[in-house]
Design a protein around this nucleic acid. Structure first.
Lengths: 125, 125
DNA sequence: CCGTATCCCAGCCGATACTG
DNA sequence: CAGTATCGGCTGGGATACGG
């Protein structure tokens, strides 16, 4: 049994890899992390930049990322209130790691699309 | 706008990173890929090793991985039939990349759990 | 041995409307 | 500006049963 499998048995739903993957799997999470790489950004600024995300889902996703210590939330008592989101050091190291995955994806996307077409032709219906 | 965001705009649901992430996000996918690292394995062998997965979900997940060219499916016309699943070269390079993520997760799991506890205490209810 | 067919439910996500 | 409340659709996954 490999470490990965053992980890899953031991931690069950607390397997570290699953924990991280579940966070990254959120439809907009990686995009949000990416958006924060250049520095702190306000809520509606993110909303405008990431086209198609709703207020609810943006708030939800930000909460999850915050709860896992990947981003920070800072409130400025202006009128009206201003809130800034930023990568934590932890979140910053994660985006570095995710970049490797993104590079793999870009490098191999053609191979994946070829495989998909081949599979779909070989399995009609 | 960063490359990642642009990629999302251009490819929409065909963004390479999302494509890969969606595959890895399947609850059992990474565990299956991990199980195949030592060589080809038969269906029920995987099922036994990965405790808790149902036949339906195992079959489903294997199909998705196969469609994306990450694993191969070989049928031996024995009686009863034997089927072997194995990592493709493409799948093998992906698991290498995923290992980096798994290492990050293990290395930082404590920090994540601390963040979660802190968040939950700061946000009761 | 290797699957598919069904039914069911929890959770994600979207749209819309409303508030400090 | 930065959210919450509500409703509703869709899909991933679990349980169970059946077929080649």
């Amino acid at each position: 049994m490999t470490p990965m499998q053992q980890a899953y048995d031991v931690y069950e739903d607390r397997c570290p890899t699953r924990l991280v993957l579940d966070r990254l799997a959120d439809k907009w999470a990686v995009l949000i992390l990416d958006r924060l790489q250049d520095g702190p950004v306000r809520f509606n600024h993110i909303r405008r930049d990431i086209k198609g995300i709703s207020q609810k889902v943006l708030a939800q996703t930000l909460r999850k990322l915050e709860r896992n210590g990947l981003i920070s939330r800072t409130i400025f008592p202006t009128v009206p209130v201003t809130v800034e989101y930023a990568l934590t050091p932890l979140g910053s190291t994660l985006t570095d790691t995710v970049s490797a995955l993104a590079h793999w994806a870009e490098k191999n996307m053609d191979a994946i699309f070829v495989a998909q077409r081949a599979y779909d032709e070989a399995h009609p219906g």
